[in-house]
C-alpha cells in the first residue's frame, strides 16, 4: 500500500525521511561490506531487486474479487535480512514512483519506512524466531510474509493518522478508521501473499535449494527434511 504523491503535508513527510535515511545509510554500509567481501553478491542483489519490481507489477488474484500487487518485501527480508532489504526496497519504490506512478517522491520517506523497513524487520524477526522454535518451515514463511504485510498496513495507517490529526484523541480515532478501512481490503491480500511466498519457497527448495543454504537462509538439515532425504 503506497502513500500517494502529495498526500502527506510538510512537517510529516520530512519526519519520515529523517527516520528512514539513517536506516538506509546503515543498509548501504552493510551492503558495501558484503560486496567487498563477496563480489558476486552485487549482481545477485540486482536481479533480486528487479524480481521484486516485476513481481509487484504483476496482478495477484485475490479472494474478494479485487486485484492487488504483491509487495515481495517479506521474501527479500527472509533471504537478505532487513538492512539490505531496506536498500533494495528504496530503489524499487523509487522505480515504482517513476515508472508506474505507485507512491511518490515526497512520500518516499514514509513509504520506505512502512514497506522497506517496518514490514521486512517484522518478517525477519518472525522468520528467525520461528526457525529457532523449529516450527514447520512453510508455516514460518507464511506467517513472516503475512504479518510483515500487516505491519506495513498498520504503519501506513499510523503515518496517515499522524499527518491529519491535531490532538491525541483525534489521532486515536483516525488511526482506528484508517486501520479498519485498510483491514477490509488488505487483510485477505496479505494472506494471499503469505501463501504465495510459502509456495514460492517450496518450488525454490525443490529446484535450487543450494542457493538458500549458501545464503544461510535455511540449514541443510531443514532442506533434507523437507525433501524427505535422510542422510
Amino acid at each position: 500500500m503506497h502513500i500517494m504523491e502529495g498526500f502527506l503535508p510538510t512537517p510529516w513527510l520530512l519526519l519520515w525521511f529523517a527516520i528512514s535515511i539513517p536506516v538506509l545509510a546503515y543498509g548501504i554500509y552493510k551492503l558495501d561490506r558484503l560486496v567487498s567481501k563477496k563480489r558476486e553478491i552485487l549482481p545477485l542483489l540486482a536481479v533480486a531487486g528487479a524480481f521484486v519490481f516485476v513481481l509487484s507489477s504483476l496482478k495477484l488474484p485475490s479472494v474478494n474479487g479485487s486485484c492487488s500487487h504483491p509487495t515481495g518485501t517479506g521474501m527479500a527480508a527472509i533471504i537478505f535480512g532487513p538492512a539490505i532489504s531496506a536498500v533494495l526496497g528504496t530503489i524499487v519504490l523509487l522505480f515504482q514512483a517513476l515508472f508506474l506512478a505507485h507512491g511518490g517522491l515526497t512520500t518516499l520517506g514514509a513509504n520506505v519506512f512502512s514497506m522497506g523497513i517496518a514490514g521486512p524487520v517484522v518478517a525477519y524477526l518472525i522468520y528467525k524466531a520461528g526457525m529457532k522454535a523449529k516450527l514447520n518451515f512453510f508455516l514460518v514463511v507464511f506467517l513472516a510474509a503475512t504479518l510483515g504485510d500487516w505491519t506495513t498496513y498498520v504503519v501506513t495507517s499510523l503515518e496517515l493518522a499522524l499527518a491529519f490529526s491535531g490532538s491525541t484523541a483525534e489521532f486515536l480515532i483516525l488511526f482506528e478508521k484508517f486501520a479498519t478501512v485498510f483491514a477490509v481490503t488488505q487483510v485477505p491480500i496479505a494472506i494471499m501473499e503469505g501463501a504465495v511466498t510459502a509456495l514460492l519457497f517450496k518450488y525454490v527448495i525443490n529446484v535450487k535449494s543450494d542457493i538458500l543454504v549458501e545464503l544461510k537462509v535455511v540449514e541443510a538439515a531443514v532442506v533434507n527434511k523437507i525433501k524427505g532425504v535422510s542422510l
Binding site: A48, F51, P61, L200
Partner: peptide, 25 residues
C-alpha cells in the same frame, strides 16, 4: 488455478533471475 499459476510464475521467475545473476557476474 490462477493462484497455482501465479506461484509457479513467481518461483520460475525467481530461479531464472538467480541463474541470470550468476551469469551476469
Amino acid at each position: 488455478k490462477s493462484f497455482n499459476s501465479f506461484t509457479m510464475l513467481a518461483s520460475t521467475l525467481f530461479i531464472r533471475s538467480w541463474e541470470q545473476g550468476e551469469r551476469l557476474f
